[in-house]
Design a protein around this nucleic acid. Sequence first.
DNA 1: CTCTGTGAACTCTTTCACAGCA
DNA 2: TGCTGTGAAAGAGTTCACAGAG
Lengths: 227, 227
Amino acid sequence: MARLPLYLRTLVEVQAEQTATISSERLAELAGVNAAKVRKDLSYLGSYGTRGVGYDVEYLLFQMSRELGLTKDWPVAIVGVGNLGAALANYGGFGDRGFPVAALVDADRSKVGTRLGEHVIRHVDDLPELVAELGIAIGIIATPAAGAQDVADRLVAAGVPSILNFAPTVLTVPPEASLRKVDLALELQILSFYRQRDSVADAVEAVEAADGVAARGTAPEAPEPVV
Amino acid sequence: MARLPLYLRTLVEVQAEQTATISSERLAELAGVNAAKVRKDLSYLGSYGTRGVGYDVEYLLFQMSRELGLTKDWPVAIVGVGNLGAALANYGGFGDRGFPVAALVDADRSKVGTRLGEHVIRHVDDLPELVAELGIAIGIIATPAAGAQDVADRLVAAGVPSILNFAPTVLTVPPEASLRKVDLALELQILSFYRQRDSVADAVEAVEAADGVAARGTAPEAPEPVV
DNA sequence: CTCTGTGAACTCTTTCACAGCA
DNA sequence: TGCTGTGAAAGAGTTCACAGAG
């Protein structure tokens, strides 16, 4: 369940406030979902709640961390040290959450050998050694779109099982590798899409109210409510 | 449908290759989904395909842009000019896709007045004027977690209808505002979660194969391998 | 009496499969 | 004939609602 990390983060915040126990309802409110969903999700981990009381925050955190594979660290390599790569490297949140940045890699020889924070930038050709030496578990692609597929291929070839892609392009990897993408502009498009949808929906409602037609979706070429 | 931006991006790439027409199958392959899904999604825009031929790339792009509200620009304000904010500001992809970065804002007075690229950093107190002057449609929050809710409140108060949150915390906004969050470490957690799930599933399968038990989900209180 | 854990109903999404148009 | 557009079936995910533990 992809919501587990969200609960985890919420629980960490809750724990900081000395809260020993939390109800599904409270957790749902903090995480921005509904209580039934929380209970269903958590029941999948096992029966860790106490009826009439709620969930023990610390114990739940422990079980969730275990389930998420966070009891051990997963070293990360960032490939592409441009603006975004540098921002990710400096972003403290990864190490705190069990994903230490273990290597910075770039294809640009003029960057190789320079420092960024505690790391010396290495060349992308060194990936196989870096993976073997540092136990890289996750590769983050922060290169321009053009080079991203090549980097993905190299990561897979070097034995990195999981890839997070920030380059704005669709990548393909063999089935044994996991791939997720983050498209920053896409998030903006989704936002404006929902805005657009809402105003279109409003307009449609206004029309329907005016002439009593119940149309769902769109009105293509046909001069009638399609189908 | 949240996949429309993905199709849009794919179509732009296809168009660059002088392809005038595209079948649902080809588009599906490039976008990494299946053909039936593509046809269902696109049919929702209207009947813009030609049977036996496919979709006209340019016309489809036009219709999708229209639907996504991309025929006009949506100026963006980035709040929080740390590493991430600076990376986002320098990330060319936003402007290209109809989201020009119109303002950089920070709460740190020592940053206010300094330049970053073509922009002078403004103080967060100036948000209302900036929104009014520049027609800011989307606010991007790239501050530390602690200040994020305050920034969200200020953005909403200033009349910004859509917010994209990069701070690792759950925000609440009134229902008239749209909110999306991007949690970078969360993406990593999801990746390692699926890894973990797969290996757990493999282990469970091995156990089932060994003793013929068909167990779905978890084994709760029982005095056995915890969960 | 509170709050979990979970069947059952419901809703939304995905996939199938094919009629029908170019 | 090739490929779209779309009902209908299948599957996921969500919500309801309540039995029962503490």
